[in-house]
Amino acid sequence: MTALSTVDIGRGSEDLYRDQLPGLLNQLADRARVASITASSAIEGIVVDDSARADRILAGRVTNLRTRSEQELAGYRDAQDYLFQGSWRPLNPGLLLHLHKLLFAHTAAPGGQFKTEDNVVVDRAATGELTVRFRPVRASDTPHFVAELIDRYAAEATARRHHPVLLVGLFVLDLLVVHPFEDGNGRVTRALTNALLMDAGYSVSRYVSLEQQIAASADGYYQALLDSTHGWHDGEADPWPWLTYFVNILATAYRMFAERAASGRADGSKQDRVLDYVLHHAPRIFRVADIRTALPGISDPTIRVVLDRLRREGAIASEGLGRAAAWRRLPS
């Protein structure tokens, strides 16, 4: 698998970059932390519109959290920082409960407990109609399934019979299918994904945000999960659509990491991020709202500057006017 080879080659270069470019890697880590927290939250619709205030929340300089979005942004900050400090081991059900507690610690919602009622995973159409996408395991069975999943993962990781990245991907898929919490499943799982990859020796998520890559390809993310959940309860699910997506996300992160290390600078100009999304990740026809969702924390004026530049260069064309306007990528 070419993408998996890219991941392994990238992993082999991490020590070299850490030895030769410690200052650059510190800058990358700071940027990736902010991008991961804001992107993973935005995937769930949690957005703080004031980007300057969001930055202060992520830096821990805001004590009066005004809205539920601010509270949950601070909660994801705490959960991710706890994992990145490296003292979370061992992996056990208590760790999942602790992450969930941190996620909701700033809200009035209860955190730190498994679901007490059966839940479903749904899709919401533009009309507001809900369609059941998947039925997770029953609430009464959740502690058993979580414990069994962790035991199986630990046994396979110790046995080293399979590629560690594929094992992490399978753990993530099964945890999302179990859906152990009433709310916060995606965020807990994405935060834990970074920790498990680093534990297996793949530390790119410390320097390049995987969550931002997922937000930029949200349709592919949800479709891969959907394709790999059919028949899960009967033991007939095909994990490869999800694993293919997962490995490709990681390979893309390693390529970005290598490019930034080679250039000797922390990519992260907000205009560069908008440019990359529009040219390489956005749908062929997209709206400003798509960019906002994929790149939380970037202001509309910055987005408009990049769109105007690309329009002048003949890379995109506008369709319509005002807030309803769409943009179309033109053939190069």
Rank of each mutant, 00 (worst) to 15 (best):
A215G: 09
D174R: 13
S203K: 10
L210S: 02
I214N: 07
I214V: 15
A215E: 04
A216W: 05
R187E: 00
L167T: 01
R160P: 05
L176R: 01
H163A: 13
R206F: 13
V168Y: 10
R190L: 04
H163Q: 12
L166V: 09
L167H: 00
A216S: 15
L210D: 00
A218E: 14
L170E: 15
A218D: 09
R187T: 00
G184Y: 01
E156R: 15
R187H: 01
Q213I: 10
A200P: 11
G186I: 06
V168L: 09
F171M: 08
L210T: 01
T158P: 01
T189C: 12
T189A: 13
L197T: 07
Q212P: 08
S209D: 04
N185G: 13
V172Y: 13
L176T: 01
T189P: 11
Y202G: 06
G184E: 00
V188E: 02
S203C: 11
Y202D: 04
A191S: 08
S209E: 00
L197N: 12
I214K: 11
A195I: 10
G201L: 09
G184T: 02
S205D: 11
S205E: 06
V178R: 03
H163E: 15
S217K: 11
V172P: 04
L175Q: 02
Q213R: 13
H162L: 10
T158G: 07
N185C: 12
R206A: 14
P180S: 09
R161S: 14
P164V: 07
T158L: 10
I214W: 08
V188C: 03
V188K: 00
A157C: 07
Y202S: 07
R161H: 15
P180T: 03
G169F: 02
L167R: 04
A195H: 14
E156C: 05
L196P: 10
D199F: 09
D199G: 11
R190C: 03
E182W: 10
F171E: 08
R206L: 12
T193H: 05
L167N: 04
E156S: 14
R160A: 15
V165P: 12
I214M: 12
L192K: 04
L175W: 04
D183S: 12
E211R: 06
G169Q: 03
F171C: 09
L170M: 14
R190P: 01
A216P: 06
A218C: 01
V204R: 06
S203F: 08
P180W: 00
R206C: 08
P180H: 03
L192I: 05
M198C: 14
F181C: 06
N185F: 12
L175T: 03
E211K: 02
L166D: 06
L196M: 11
V168I: 09
G201K: 07
V208F: 09
V204I: 09
A218H: 09
R206N: 15
R161D: 14
L173R: 08
L170W: 13
S205T: 10
H162M: 09
V172Q: 14
P164K: 08
P180Q: 04
S217R: 15
A157G: 04
V165R: 07
G186F: 06
L175N: 04
G184F: 00
R160D: 15
S217E: 13
Y207P: 05
G201E: 11
A215K: 02
S205M: 07
V208D: 06
L173A: 09
F181P: 02
D183Y: 12
D174W: 07
